[in-house]
């Protein structure tokens, strides 16, 4: 009996200190997805005031946090002002070096501003998407071009500035008539649709939401051209929805 008492007492001593405070159970991090974002200024997060805002609100950042597993890694290779021709030789090799499994591609305005023809744009975009698909190893989402005629920056180029927005066109270049711009955007979107179909990518139909993205003041940054945090949230939601649908499909 005495030995039992000793054992019981010693068992109490062996318990040691009380347990440390613990948090909720932490689930596994999931699949180690590698996500690469390619694009121009919208993808960088231009339009957000500082690096802290970009780190939280740039739409690829939001997309990464919305739909990709915690163990995923995200790289943003976007360069402000870049065209598809330049991206093919700068952003694409860098993206391929990290072996991405999910890629978002969002080029349009800068090619448009630089007068790249829809045919050349389509050819360049095809080469970009084809390379990034890596024979089907990566899921590539391609955003099309929104209608831009309602953007304050566009209106500034037409001499109809209503706020702090200024015309992004280089000095000496005049903006074509609105009908011409609309036709060019249509042609770009047709090229994007064709590339997506040809390369087995996923189309993110930004164009379908132009009425909100390019007209609602709260969705547009102060420069009148880039998305505001709310606009970034909307873009991210569009890419996230397309990604989720494509995964299910």
């Amino acid at each position: 009996m005495i030995s039992v008492a000793i054992a019981a007492a010693c068992a109490g001593c062996a318990g040691g200190p009380p347990p440390l405070p613990t948090g909720p159970p932490i689930p596994e991090g999931g699949q180690p997805v590698v996500y690469a974002a390619l694009g121009a200024s919208e993808t960088v997060g231009t339009g957000l005031n500082d690096i802290a805002l970009r780190a939280r609100f740039a739409w690829p950042q939001l997309f990464f946090n919305m739909v990709l597993p915690r163990a995923g890694t995200y790289y943003n290779f976007a360069v402000p002002g870049i065209t598809t021709a330049a991206a093919l030789y700068s952003e694409v090799p860098q993206a391929l070096a990290v072996h991405p499994t999910v890629v978002t591609v969002f080029f349009n305005i800068d090619d448009l501003v630089n007068g790249v023809s829809p045919t050349d744009f389509g050819t360049n975009l095809d080469a970009i998407v084809h390379a990034l698909r890596q024979d089907g190893r990566a899921r590539v989402l391609v955003g099309n071009a929104p209608a831009i005629d309602s953007l304050p920056a566009f209106k500034a180029c037409q001499g109809q500035a209503t706020g702090p927005a200024h015309c992004p066109l280089p000095a000496g270049i005049t903006i074509p008539p609105q009908a011409t711009v609309d036709a060019a955007v249509d042609a770009y979107d047709a090229a994007i649709t064709a590339v997506v179909a040809r390369e087995g990518a996923t189309l993110v139909d930004v164009r379908a939401h132009s009425d909100v993205l390019t007209t609602n003041p709260e969705d547009i940054a102060a420069d009148g051209l880039h998305p505001s945090p709310l606009g970034d949230q909307m873009l991210a939601a569009l890419f996230a929805a397309a990604y989720t649908t494509a995964r299910r499909g």
Binding site: G23, I26, G29, A55, Q61, F64, N65, R70, A71, G72, T73, Y74, Y75, N76, F77, V79
Partner: peptide, 13 residues
């Protein structure tokens, strides 16, 4: 001033 990020997420354990 061009800086790129390699972003990961981590749970605080």
């Amino acid at each position: 001033g061009v800086v790129r990020g390699r972003w990961t997420r981590a749970a605080i354990t």
